[in-house]
Design a binder for these strands. Structure first.
Length: 478
RNA sequence: GGCGCCGUACCCAAGUGGUAAGGGAGAGGUCUGCAAAACCUUUAUGCAUCGGUUCAAUUCCGAUCGGCGCCUCCA
């Protein structure tokens, strides 16, 4: 197992990763707020987390992956003036909040399944953990970190030393209200709500009784309460999008460590944004691209996964339909090449990893080292290309090593099959007949007829390949 | 106003103080009755611009220009 190095946002440097409990990893990844579909920018982050989890497991670590489902809405601001997103979505669609949550949760996992993202070990819903949140808030309160104002319970950031350490924030430098009205109830602009009672919810399903009155929890507290419930009061890795660094994760740290008095998360990993020409994709701005949109345009979900693999997780990735088309072409060429090698390898039993050709082992070792080097996935992908193009290796060794690499990359090599398999028997017979007619024409050196038949097949989307062994056909690339 | 990131060929993109991965697209060639596939060759003396440090900078430092993110909810 190589030495695993990861970039820790806390401290902003590459650190060697060593789990709290040898051999085991507690990993918490921020999940979706289920008031709408996930867009492909959100999905990029989950692909990154999937690569992280698969890499750690590849290195022999037993990973417990916990993901929250935020089905308690967030206000558009925490001054209680905005409308809850869940409630608004429910109203707009004429459904209950719980129906909305359930629908979009299913849609979320349908997307991650299509992307080959492994399901988390634990999926926890905020609405089912409100008592855990209340207990946590009581611990925070006991420590003297809170105050009540205007009916809400606030966390007082001035009581927490090192507030903002993750984001390098200095409170005096922040321009509160630069983009939003300041909540008059707050002592400091960075204070945040632990429990709301001044609710405008129309939906009783989202109200809970609490020591501070009937209401609902603040957003940040769910991640603290649920992560500790399933992973303990200190655990290894917490990941999410970069947008969470300054507020969400900063506040999670403050409230968690205020409650327990001990270090909470050991390694913080953050994925950069997928960006469009105009900047990032935003759920709240309304227009965004979903995985289904891409599929409707003729892409496969794994084309998008492949696209994501082309850029490092800590760099912004420029999305365009052209760039995705390039990724698709690249992936399909790769699949083709892999299938050719597999055919060449024949039906011989696959060697296991230990009996592989030294050259293939060397490439696997490089591959592992690249993953261990802060998930250098683009280079790992290049290593897979190098493997597939290496003329010095027997096809069967290439096939085995490539499948091994793909257990992390998830490009779909194992499931790859020629598109021709999807052709109906009728069509197959029709194509076969035309191919035979052309073979006859060729025998008679009737080139005009042979070429006409080639053209006819081409118009049907069928490409012919002549070889000494005869003529084979396949579907033209889309 | 504060914090931070980025600017690499036609496109996506990796990377390093010692001379630019990979993929897509394009061009030429081998092969072929014609094709396809495959293979070979090829496409940045150059990494936004201008200075500086250095034996050596795309890689470090500074400035400038341009783009982006965060300081509301957001992956």
């Amino acid at each position: 197992m190589p030495v695993i190095k990861l970039f820790n946002t806390m401290g902003r440097s590459i650190e060697e990763f060593t789990p709290l409990v040898p051999g085991k990893v507690g990993f918490y990844g921020c999940g979706p707020t289920v008031y709408n579909y996930a867009h492909i920018g959100n999905l990029r982050t989950y692909v990154f987390e999937d690569i992280l989890v698969r890499s750690l497991r590849r290195f022999g670590l037993d990973v417990t992956h916990v993901m929250n489902i935020t089905d308690v809405g967030h206000l558009s601001g925490d001054d209680d003036t905005g409308e809850d997103k869940m409630v608004r979505s429910a109203r707009e669609r004429g459904q209950s909040v719980l129906q909305i949550a359930s629908y979009y949760t299913d849609a979320f996992f349908a997307d991650t399944d299509r992307l080959g993202i492994a399901r988390p070990s634990v999926v926890c819903k905020a609405t089912e953990h409100v008592q855990d949140m209340i207990k946590l808030i009581q611990r925070i309160e006991k420590g003297g970190y809170t105050y009540v104002a205007g009916g809400n319970l606030y966390f007082d950031v001035s009581k927490f030393p090192n507030y903002g350490k993750l984001a390098n924030l200095r409170l005096e430098d922040l321009k509160a209200g630069a983009r939003i009205e300041v909540d008059e109830n707050k002592k400091n602009p960075q204070d945040f709500v632990l429990w709301f009672t001044k609710s405008k919810f129309e939906n009783q399903a989202l109200l809970w009784d609490s020591p501070w009155g009937v209401g609902y929890p603040g957003w940040h507290v769910e991640c603290s309460a649920m992560s500790m419930k399933y992973l303990g009061e200190s655990f290894d890795i917490h990941a999410g999008g970069v947008d969470h660094i300054p507020v969400h994760h900063t506040n999670e740290i403050a409230q968690s460590e205020a409650a327990t008095g001990k270090p909470w998360v050991r390694y913080w990993l953050h994925a950069e944004f997928l960006v469009l020409d105009k900047g990032k994709m935003s759920k709240s701005k309304g227009s965004f691209i979903t995985l289904q949109n891409l599929i409707d345009e003729g892409f496969e979900a794994l084309d998008y996964r492949y696209f994501c693999l082309g850029g490092h997780y800590r760099s912004q990735l420029s999305f365009s339909s052209d760039a995705l088309a390039q990724a698709k072409a690249s992936r399909h060429t790769m699949l083709d090449r892999f299938l050719d090698l597999k055919a060449q390898a024949g039906t011989n039993p696959l060697p296991n990893r230990n009996s592989l050709h030294a050259g293939a082992l060397e490439r696997l070792e490089r591959f592992d080292n690249l993953l261990a080097d802060d998930l250098a996935v683009p280079r790992a992908l290049a290593e897979l290309w190098g493997l597939l193009k290496d003329p010095s290796l027997p096809p069967i060794d290439v096939v085995v090593a490539a499948l091994d690499m793909d257990t992390v990359l998830g490009i779909g090599l194992a499931q790859a099959k020629r598109d021709e398999k999807s052709i109906s028997n009728d069509e197959r017979a029709k194509i076969q007949a035309l191919v035979e007619r052309r073979t006859e024409a060729k025998k008679a050196k009737n080139w005009a007829e042979a070429d006409a038949l080639r053209q006819e097949l081409k118009d049907m989307g069928v490409v012919l390949e002549d070889s000494p062994a005869g003529t084979t056909w396949k579907l033209a690339k889309a």
